[in-house]
Design a protein around this nucleic acid. Structure first.
Lengths: 354, 354
DNA sequence: GACCCTGTTGTTAGCGCTATCGGCAGCGCT
DNA sequence: AGCGCTGCCGATAGCGCTAACAACAGGGTC
């Protein structure tokens, strides 16, 4: 509009640009209200002790008076740190992973990190997509359930250069950190237990062909153990892409009884399946463990309450979350991690159902 | 731009500032690689059709060649939209809420939103803290479980000016959107069912004094119904701050039998409690429903599998998530929401345990 | 030819915050 | 007085992206 004459040169008229300005309180608002610079307010927010008592008090008063809420996006951008950690799990509503995530989240929240949870719905190709969208947030760390990944996932992880913990499995060649146990060994141990209880015709029932690598690993362990201990061929039934529900467990039981009618034990890849099957047996009057022994995996709370109580493999879900948080914190701080791969083990819990 | 002599005034020489530059690929990297401006690359990423076929192809090639992953923090800051929605739930590992969150998340992910989940651990004061940290991300929308909030929470919500859906309850005076049902009415309906089945000495067992407003509302509904239908005083037992587990359910059963030994029915504030109690009865040889009727709340999958199958109140958890997403999407788009408060109802599911 | 479209691309100026450096006072020591 | 140090605070320049506008070509209309 008005072209002013400044130092003899015509300045281009500064056009006012409109932005849909955020309606919220900014650092400079607080700065103005307390008579200091924005930088000082930022210091009060992030490291109060680096500011004199007097100034701090004044700024803090202004902080509460204005109701300032920091804009983390701006903070991330400026500091190149997001104070965010992403967790990639197959399902939130699967309680085992929920326990891990809960412990992980609690431990990290204590250090000022927020946790993003993403679900892959047991679809490996989905993992890549979710990961990509998460990396857009530039997380400072990453937790993943599983140790098997697509090449695309590995490329993304490599390019991102973010600390990663893989969990719930075991690998000879982890991406970075690893907190887990051998699903195969755990399943083999369960076979050992069943054999010890005199079972000889053990069937494995799970969802091992449709995107659950952990179930597949358990199947491997089962297969090897059956061959080693009993010298017999594996007998398996598969749930395909069916969801991990008690209904599916009942269906698996039916399948097992149909395909392998001489089974004297069925071990499931999850307590959820086993619980469904167990209740179905009770309802039908199939004697457990007299006629048929049943075993699960995971040691959900449910397992010990059922009648008969369910034999299962206990896995320290919450411990996995805690330990993952611990290792990740060290790595994010740049501290050396002495033992980056931790085996948390498993435990066969013998109960009434076998 | 450069420091030259402008209008006879010597400009101070610009010192080069060092920043710990992000190692990752930026828009301008891609722009340079494909010979267009950064803005055009941005357009290709966000709205491919606004760019000519030829340019788009070239840019997309560069995009995959460089492995570009957008920095969402920068995007948020510039556009003042985060494409993020936050969900505040009491617990992730409580499967009912997990179903809601899952449905919510799935519905919104389809529209490009990412979901932050935060847990309050059934502590209202914690809600405020979590909310504050979430608002730092400037979410475009918010889902909250519950309709009762602290004044501090309400202030935060008001100042933030973000669309909000309250869920899992009912309120005469919602903050904004509301997708839920009356917990009180649902509990009353359960009392009605029990009375219909001939029960007269009904005990309510729950966790209603320690930060679970929904359990408290159910208690209210129970109390009113008992007075109205039976003209008797309420009999209740409380779990205090104990977690919502089957163990606690057993403890509640013990408490009920001790305090109100003449009870002919116990209704629990959650299926988890009821399931624990039910299995304890089976184990102890207490005839259900002969001696004692048991009822839960939530209609978890477990309920219909138990023997005897558990009578409960079915609540459309997933539907709540879906509908919330729907309403929130409309509001976030700025579209008018015709019916901003939706009652999704409940349903008493009579099974063998009563 | 003047005019107004439409479609496509580039330019500019931030969004709100923090890293980095500079400045200045106050102190202790030589 | 001179020096260095520490504690505190402010000024400046971005972080990587997008909104808003500018620019321009090509086409049609009158």
């Amino acid at each position: 509009m008005t072209a002013d004459i400044v130092s003899g040169v015509t300045q281009p008229p500064p056009r006012p640009r409109k932005r849909s300005a955020t309606r919220s309180v900014t650092l400079s608002d607080v700065a103005a209200a307390s008579g200091v610079s924005a930088q000082t307010v930022s210091r009060v927010v992030r490291d109060p002790l680096s500011v004199s008592d007097e100034t701090r008090a004044r700024v803090q008063a202004a902080l509460t008076a204005t109701g300032y809420v920091p804009n983390l996006a701006a903070s991330n951008l400026a500091s190149n740190r997001s104070r965010t950690v992403a967790a990639l799990v197959p399902q939130i509503n699967a309680s085992v992973f929920a326990d891990t995530v809960h412990a992980f989240s609690t431990a990290l929240a204590a250090h000022g990190y927020q946790i993003f949870v993403g679900t892959t719905d047991y679809r490996p190709e989905h993992e890549e997509e979710v990961l990509r969208s998460f990396l857009g947030r530039r997380p400072d760390g990453l937790l993943m359930v599983g140790t098997r990944h697509t090449p695309g996932t590995l490329t993304l992880l490599g390019a991102a250069g973010v600390p990663v913990v893989e969990t719930w499995g075991w690998s000879e060649d982890p991406v970075d950190l690893l907190v887990g146990f051998s699903n195969a060994a755990a399943a083999a141990a369960m076979v050992g237990h069943l054999v010890e209880r005199g079972r000889r015709r053990i069937t494995f029932a799970g969802r091992h062909t449709s995107g659950d690598p952990r179930a597949a690993e358990r199947l491997d362990g089962y297969t090897r153990a059956v061959r080693d201990l009993l010298g017999s061929e594996p007998r398996t039934v598969d749930a395909g892409p069916e969801p991990v529900t008690m209904d599916t467990g009942v269906a698996l039981l039916d399948l097992a009884l149909e395909r392998h009618p001489d089974s004297d034990a069925v071990m499931f890849s999850s307590d959820v399946f086993a619980a469904g099957a167990l209740q179905a047996c009770v309802r039908r009057g199939i004697d457990v463990p007299g006629t048929l022994a049943l075993a699960g995996f995971g040691d959900f709370e449910l397992a010990r309450h059922l009648v008969p109580a369910l034999t299962t493999v206990a896995v320290p879900s919450a411990r996995i979350g805690e330990l993952s948080a611990e290792l990740l914190l060290m790595r994010m701080r740049g501290a050396p991690v002495d033992v980056p791969h931790r085996d948390v083990g498993y435990r066969v819990v013998a109960r009434e159902s076998t």
